[in-house]
Simulated assay, not measured.
Amino acid sequence: MGVLTDYFRAPGAAAVVRALELTGGARPEFGEASEGAFDGVMAKGVDPGVLLGQLVAAIRAEPWRVDLVEDAAVWPTTPQPGPDGPWSEDDPWSTGPWVTELDDAARDALAEVRDDRIPAAVARWAEAAEWHGADPADLLPLAEDLIALARRARTAGERLYCWICL
């Protein structure tokens, strides 16, 4: 079982919540901007904190750290239980999906990388243990898609979001 992660851009958390309320939290549609459809990238297994954070670190040429990409929960909208619960089988915080809003610093790091520096950053990104020795050439298209999405988000004055499902 893998973790599904999709990144998309939206004008704000309220627009994301409205779209997710229409679908019960289902994966947002990607395509032309309309109610419930977003400009996005499917990035299976690229979680915001670790793998996206390692791409941001590679772009910035700095060490990765767990708090490099800050994110805040947007979905589910029910109050999150404390560490001791109450948890139940049907609690959306246990079952997902989850959506987080990424900080603008991560978006901007992706958006600002020069095109001629992308291959070197991806080569460094491929060294992450979580990639298990992946070939940088295989990761380059995904990195380019994430960078292009961040550029479009910044140009539009929008935020980046990550939809996560088990």
Rank of each mutant, 00 (worst) to 15 (best):
D115W: 15
G157M: 02
P86S: 10
A111C: 12
T77V: 15
L149A: 01
T100C: 11
P83Y: 10
A120F: 10
D47Q: 04
A123Q: 15
D104W: 09
G12N: 12
V41I: 13
D67M: 11
E21T: 04
A105P: 02
E158P: 00
E29N: 07
A10L: 02
R124K: 09
A106M: 02
F38K: 06
W87E: 01
P48N: 11
F38V: 04
E35G: 12
D67F: 09
W64H: 07
A33F: 00
Y161K: 00
W87T: 02
A126N: 03
L146R: 04
V17E: 09
L139I: 04
R154S: 12
E32N: 09
D135M: 00
E32F: 05
P97I: 06
L149K: 01
W125C: 04
G31H: 09
T5P: 02
C162I: 04
G36W: 08
G31T: 07
E127V: 03
L22S: 08
A121H: 01
A126W: 09
W163L: 10
V69S: 03
D84L: 05
D145L: 07
P119E: 10
A19S: 12
E29K: 11
A156H: 06
G36F: 09
A128R: 02
G12Y: 04
G85S: 10
R18A: 14
R18D: 15
V3D: 01
R154N: 08
G82Q: 09
G96D: 09
E144L: 15
D138V: 00
L52I: 13
L166A: 14
F38I: 08
P28H: 12
R18T: 06
A13P: 13
V74Q: 07
D6L: 13
R9M: 14
A33S: 14
A37V: 11
L140G: 02
L51E: 01
I59A: 05
E32G: 12
A72G: 12
G36S: 07
K44T: 15
E35K: 13
V122R: 06
E158F: 13
D71P: 01
G53H: 08
R152M: 02
L149V: 13
W64I: 11
A13H: 02
P76W: 02
R124S: 15
D39N: 07
D103T: 07
R114K: 14
A37Y: 07
R27E: 14
A137C: 00
S34D: 14
G45N: 03
D71T: 13
I164G: 04
Q80E: 13
W87P: 00
P11G: 15
P92G: 00
V56Q: 05
L149F: 04
R152S: 06
L55V: 12
R27P: 03
A10M: 06
S88I: 07
P63T: 12
D91E: 05
L51H: 02
V113L: 06
D115T: 15
D103F: 03
D135V: 04
S94I: 10
A14K: 14
L55S: 00
E21I: 04
T5V: 15
L142H: 08
R117H: 15
G96V: 06
L110I: 09
A105S: 10
T95R: 13
A57W: 10
S88D: 13
A10P: 00
P92V: 03
F8T: 12
A106I: 11
R9K: 10
A134T: 00
G45T: 09
L52N: 03
M42G: 06
V16A: 14
A37S: 15
A143T: 11
W93D: 03
